[in-house]
Write a protein that binds this DNA or RNA. Structure first.
Lengths: 141, 141
DNA sequence: TATAAAGCTTCGAGTTGCTCGAAGTCAACA
DNA sequence: TGTTGACTTCGAGCAACTCGAAGCTTTATA
């Protein structure tokens, strides 16, 4: 799997077999910058429906799984609960007929992230206001 | 630190800050858009060192307390733990000598919030990429 | 070939920061 | 006087991790 588009093709729209190199949970954690514990936790919750395991039960992450992990992180950070992510996974598994529903979910999260950015900028302003005040205070003494 | 006004002034930053008790927890919650539960929780954790109570034990929030609540929210959202906010409060109570330490804390949080904004923008891009892909997919069928 | 180390596994318990609800207090008003 | 409503405290519950123990394979070393 080379790019994001392919990834979305395989994981979000369909679920074909991914034949790319596989990573252990430790390697995957480093690559996507999500802790091993969280990756396993997500897997236990069924959020990696296409994740493979070898004969010894060892998890094997494909490139597609890594991209998927990034999407999960994104959805989680924008406020989706585990349960809601599970529902998103369900929709993905059902297939193309659920594209409108999935689109609606992503569109809602897009709005939320936009509002989060506005909120973060307000927070930044507050901090900078205080920092300016302190700076001012320090030059006065 | 001699009085509440000095403290809040040097910390919550609005000048001049009104420290007259005015609002019930319900009113305060509406004004700052933080739940009553959270305001009480923060108070229980000692994060409102100058919050007054009337004879019946009812909390009375001043304008200064509202500003302070906003700062607490900001610090919390930028990743400060309750314990760290407690330490910040300690520094505030000690007084002017701790201004450099408090400045350092706020400066660190400013950096963090800036990085959070960058991260949010990356998330937004990922969502928009997926939305575009879905849009494309829908026009193709 | 024994054994030790590394790297994974599962599972259950602990942590943080809320979030909720029950039970009680108190002031105001019909 | 009784009821309503807004508050109080306190303890339990919850989501999403986060950690650590115990065990299983595979690989490296003696």
């Amino acid at each position: 799997m080379v790019n994001m588009e392919d990834c979305i093709n395989s994981l979000a729209m369909d679920h074909p077999l991914d034949t790319t190199p596989k990573y252990s949970v430790t390697q995957a954690a480093k690559l996507v910058e999500i802790s091993e514990h969280t990756l396993r936790y997500y897997d236990d919750k069924g959020l990696f429906p296409f994740l493979q395991k070898n004969d010894a039960g060892k998890r094997l992450f494909s490139e597609a799984d890594l991209q998927w992990a990034k999407l999960l992180e994104c959805l989680s950070n924008s406020g989706l609960s585990i349960k809601e992510m599970q529902q998103y996974v369900e929709l993905c598994i059902i297939g193309d007929s659920t594209v409108p529903q999935r689109y609606a979910i992503l569109a809602r999260q897009e709005k939320i992230v936009k509002e989060q950015i506005r909120e973060k900028k307000r927070q930044l302003k507050l901090l900078q206001f205080k920092l300016d005040y302190y700076k001012d205070w320090q030059t006065r003494i």
